[in-house]
């Protein structure tokens, strides 16, 4: 178990988190449901967490893992505020479609 990853080069982790990050970005761009978009943003943050942990592990430096805690705190706070906003909007327009919110423009 402990030796399972020894032969995995670090680049693979970089690749994985970049991929996750880009999936998140594309999800944000593709979806119209605000809740799904919010989840995609969470995915982006998670890919960063993975990146931080992998850096921390390969460099034997715990700072990265501590930083992940802060990212989690922020992610939780963001989700709370974001969902509160969505609930408050849903009361007014009865929709979570991002394209229903286009009033402010030009």
């Amino acid at each position: 178990m402990e030796n399972a990853l020894v032969s995995v080069p670090h680049n693979w982790y970089l690749l994985l988190s970049s991929l996750l990050f880009c999936i998140g970005v594309m999800g944000v761009l593709f979806r119209r449901n605000v809740i799904v978009i919010l989840m995609c943003i969470e995915l982006m943050l998670n890919s960063v967490n993975l990146l931080l942990v992998s850096f921390s592990a390969y460099a034997q430096n715990a700072d990265g893992q501590v930083f992940v805690f802060f990212v989690m705190v922020v992610a939780a706070a963001e989700v709370a505020v974001g969902l509160a906003l969505i609930v408050s909007i849903y009361r007014n327009v009865a929709s979570t479609d991002i394209d229903s919110m286009k009033k402010l423009k030009w």
Binding site: E2, L5, P9, H10, L14, A57, Q60, N61, Q65
Partner: peptide, 13 residues
């Protein structure tokens, strides 16, 4: 960074 290899045993986590 590909040259880095994960240390076998670590307790930093």
């Amino acid at each position: 960074t590909g040259t880095f290899v994960l240390p076998e045993k670590s307790d930093i986590g």
